[in-house]
Write a protein that binds this DNA or RNA. Sequence first.
DNA 1: AGACCCAGGTTTTTT
DNA 2: ACCTGGGTCT
Length: 686
Amino acid sequence: MSSHTRFLDGLNPPQRAAVECTEGPVLVLAGAGSGKTRVITRRIAHIIGSGLADPQNLLAVTFTNKAAAEMRERVADLTGAASAREITISTFHAFCLQVLRRHISHLGYRSNFTISSEGDSHTLLRRVTDELGVQGESFDARTFQAAISLAKNTGETPDTLRDKPARNATEEKYQQHMTDVYAKYESALRAANSLDFDDLLTFTLRLWAEHPGLLAAAQKQYRYVMVDEYQDTNAVQYRLLRALVGKCRNLCVVGDDDQSIYGWRGADVRNILEFERDFPDAKVITLDQNYRSTETILAAANGVIRNNSARREKKLWSSLGKGRPIDHFVVGDEEDEAREAVNWLIQIRQKTGVSLEDFAILYRSNLQSRPFELALRQAGVPYQVYGGQDFFERAEVKDIISYLKVIANPRDETAFLRVVNVPRRGIGDVTLHLAHEICRTEGKSLGMAMAAVLERSMAPKNTEYGIRRFLGVIQRYRKRFRDLDAPLDVIARDLVRDIDYLDELQRTSRTPVQYEARAQNVEAVINALATYAAGTNHPRLHAFLDATHLNSDAGTESRQDMKRDGVSLMTIHSAKGLEFPFVFIVGMEDGSLPHERSITEGALDEERRLFYVALTRGKRHVTLFEALSRTRHGRERMCKTSRFLAEIPPELIVCQVRAAREMVEERVAPPKPKPKPKRRPPRKTL
DNA sequence: AGACCCAGGTTTTTT
DNA sequence: ACCTGGGTCT
């Protein structure tokens, strides 16, 4: 018996089958908490350990960088770090980026293309809609951005879109605008030698379609392909996979249709539901033993999810015992809800002695977090709110990144326009229009056009001076970043100094506190460069920019914010993949969960899955909170119980209405005594 | 360029 | 109720 059979130790029968079944198409239906990651990592180790393939012949695709990093770590525990390093474990986007950096010249782009962030694309789309004169009529850049992204992810091009039949005049008009904007946006990106997130996928698909030799090479290399969270794949990702495994067909997809909650972003749950249609000989393995939750929680979750029609039948079970029933609080309004939740949390802690990190408060939308933050602060309970403002979308961070992007890719117009006059150099609209004209007529990049403006003495003296300074800085640093005459972060720090950026911040900040915060963000970008440079043998500006665009938390304060600290507050969406001993699901009303808009749009199945995901985050105990009234859009409105609540078998729920009545009476009676803050607010709230 | 005002909208967000 | 974005005025 060879030593690699140890990779089968301790697996239950279906898990073991999933690991051992290495050849041909395999669909693993992995229910929540059923040991999915364990199966994938063991399977990888098994394939390598049994000599079926070398590490570089394996491709494992995940949806987040975090998942990829975790998977690599866990594989390394099994196979050793040297092997694990050779395996391609990455997100769809990172994988495609890698392909495109090498081969994009075949599509007429330069390999130093930059990635257009969502913010960049938004700016660009504003310009496009302006130039086409289609804003106004209830079409704005945001709408187009979402529509274009959806189109790209479902494989629509401006041409296919144009050919679609419209049902009425409004639709036709919209379609007309949409195709125009889409086409113009595409050509603007092309001119800027930029790709947006979605392009990373579609371009790779095109590359493979137009250059079969490249596809064949990829097929030859990746003989075993695994995909995590398969229920979240969209049409383009599906086509990429099909192309890649065309020959070997060793495709193993792992996912749970019941946890498909990203349909609104183009994820197509049919990919998992109809897997055997495309791979008739597929082996289907269901993992339904749950190692996370109590039987009560699973019974509740099962009771809810069975109301969805199009799904793979499966019933999670566990042997962890019944545990405590689900508690259901009915409270007055959102403030009562928050207060009651905090009381309840404190009570549970007194009884069980568990730590704050064991609690999560889950809500449907970010707006709902506010009252909980207030109540927790008031009670002196440390907490952490996840999600929200993206570090890389802050103005000062975008400024610095844009400088770096112009340096890395001379044609990146969005970045160029953002920083050409920051800090003020007297380069205004007039000059830029001049330059734009030269771009158009002579096919030059904006930078070259500006140089032409200088040569032809088309601008006033002080503007000329400004242009000279700007182009000089860019040129100097383009050379420095290429030659790497110093560490990346040192060069960047010089750049920030040379453009007097901190003075600019000082000028534009309203308060010293704000200035301090913004200067620190700039410092954080430089630190991120240093961190990046320290972790690689061949630091390159381009690779750093790629990482910042693909990895949303690459630049934030190291890994410190990864570890939980205090009670966790987050949306249900961001809780997917996590688990907590105690879960509070709040806002259990029609309008919140299911969300109002989903009700009108008839997207109830996905909302139900959302509730299912929320429930199955809980390990020991789940508490539901429902408010009788809630302030929505500024008005106080009465709420009806969430329709999903009735789907939980009633014997599993203990209703805590008394608490609510007391709350209401208290509110009606004399002015309530302001609860004094017992301790000073927690240091780290973020 | 910066301050001010009004209108509109208002989920979720792995990359 | 609140925030954003765009437009206008100084």
